[in-house]
Amino acid sequence: MSKHHVTSTVNGEPVEFLCEPQETLLDILRDQLDLTGSKEGCSSGDCGACSVTIDGRLVCACLVLGAEAEGRKIETIENMAEGDTLHPLQQKFLEEAALQCGFCTPGFLVAAKSLLDRNDNPTETEVRYWLAGNLCRCTGYDKIVKSVMDVAAEMRGE
């Protein structure tokens, strides 16, 4: 079994890695690139804790093969803050206590940012359905949904 040589861009940096055919992008990020911010809650695409974007599209990294990263641009939670400034979503999650254990949080933030990137004025229902692929067992979603709505309003300048 030979390994694939993969070249891609992760969080703006060029990276190269070797991966087994069956290894997922999540395995590569966590085990090879030491980007452990993306979490593994299920490895079957059901919890969203591993959410990342590939060329701007929101995906579950556990459902993508490492080899599929060839030539693509991957963004993870580790690159969401700009320098020493948190993204408004990160800041709002902190202020509103939209996390308890924090395990689901990277996935929610990546998914929520991806929503706001394409829809700056989502309804509560739209937020709830967009985030329905992300499980949180601690918060009951209330403060997460509110934070996303609030940030959307702030980013619209309201």
């Binding site: 966590r30 980007l35 452990t36 911010g37 993306s38 979490k39 593994e40 993870t76 939670i77 580790e78 969401m80 803050a81 948190l86 990160q90 999650f93 902190l94 202020e95 206590a97 996390l99 924090g102 395990f103 949080t105 990277p106 933030l109």
Partner: peptide, 21 residues
């Protein structure tokens, strides 16, 4: 008071280390 939690930044930036990390 509704203070910001001391471990919060680590948890919104992916720094916080859970068991598998």
């Amino acid at each position: 008071k509704r203070t910001v939690r001391p471990d919060g930044t680590d948890k919104v930036t992916g720094r916080a280390l859970f068991s598998a990390d």
